[in-house]
Design a protein around this nucleic acid. Sequence first.
DNA 1: AAAGATAATGACCAGGTGGTCATCAATCTG
DNA 2: CAGATTGATGACCACCTGGTCATTATCTTT
Lengths: 225, 225
Amino acid sequence: MRNRAEVPTEVFRKLPAEKRERIISTAVEEFAEHGFHQASINRLVKRLGIAKGSIFQYFTSKEGLFQAVFDHCVDQARKPLREIKHHPEGMGFFDKIRATLEAGIRFVRAHPQAYKLYLKMIFQENFPYREKLLSRLHLFSADYLEDLIRQGIEKGEIRKDINVPTAVFFLDALLDRFIQAYVVAFWDASSVIHQAKDEDLKKHIEEFVKLIRSGLEAKTNEHTC
Amino acid sequence: MRNRAEVPTEVFRKLPAEKRERIISTAVEEFAEHGFHQASINRLVKRLGIAKGSIFQYFTSKEGLFQAVFDHCVDQARKPLREIKHHPEGMGFFDKIRATLEAGIRFVRAHPQAYKLYLKMIFQENFPYREKLLSRLHLFSADYLEDLIRQGIEKGEIRKDINVPTAVFFLDALLDRFIQAYVVAFWDASSVIHQAKDEDLKKHIEEFVKLIRSGLEAKTNEHTC
DNA sequence: AAAGATAATGACCAGGTGGTCATCAATCTG
DNA sequence: CAGATTGATGACCACCTGGTCATTATCTTT
């Protein structure tokens, strides 16, 4: 956070926007493909067709480059997050869940590399700025879902006897995993979500929300009525 | 698969069991901590107090060592998997889900390093034998869950109108993520599952299964009856 | 056009990697 | 005990890494 303005050097900031973008987006690809340590500056500069020394004139170090890449991705993610948070008040709880899923899919479609980078960071413990990323994301996902659930309870859409933290975890797991399955093939055991077309995706979102809403159990209402 | 008998050299197989185990389990730690590429043979042999040359007399290459490590972990995982698959016939669907969760927790408690290694492999695309691992796991999780769900439908425990692949995905996501949250702190936004004690864990498993069973929606039975 | 400032370059560096192999130590065999 | 066989060893190799910096090229200003 501190010195963030210094991380891409002044030299880099003076570069034509076009070149700046090309460098950042190529670097995103490199990190998303290989993780932090396996990512290679040599390979990057070869892909870019510039000299290695230039990279270190633009960014103080590999870590500095990564920080710039990371900040770039966070910026990309900001808009959709706000968009989701400010859903119209009239929407019901399960509509909001559906909208969240749709916005998530929209994001990973628009920025697949950024999302891949996020996935890489999750399980590669020695990534720099891991803590920073995770705290930022927690701020979003957990708090957002808890708000949603409490509102849903107040409005009578959700059972009152529910354990809120468990429900937060429940939803977080499902939403996150749904998005992951769209991007990473093998998370999707039954191969229905991964890279699905719009129509099929809508159906699966519908089915999915239905499960979140009512669970798996067969209704026994007939017996009681 | 081919040449699997050749992968740990005869020299290694002649070693006293004690030393063999120490080498494998230290290697598991190294790979679980650092992933494949970041794992260092130099560091490993230093930890073990043996010469680097020895490792290459025991295993043909770093990849060979990893294969041995991997096979070792799969062997560790086999017993609990079988145990789960052969649950007593009398058990209801949701009891089986509960038992699956409990068995999963028991496994990661007994072999945390093996599980960490699995997590590392998931998002590190250039890991060797990734396909092999994933196909093995799919065989378990998806097929097993599908069986369970179909049985549950036949017995009338699960709604008949359910979309089976979606339900498989739904369950797979939840079970997997529950186990992950026990091991990896930050998956557990609300910090209730991670490394929980037996009593608390039982409660959370109960709450969790309740959600899987009935979903989030408030029951509206009162109105209809 | 000349002078000065700024940016691009790639040979070079120290350090680490997986892997090799001649040498040495120990055990087994006759 | 002598000879042979096997296993342990670590100096060494080629290669790659992030990072440096003197040199060169380009642009700006006068």
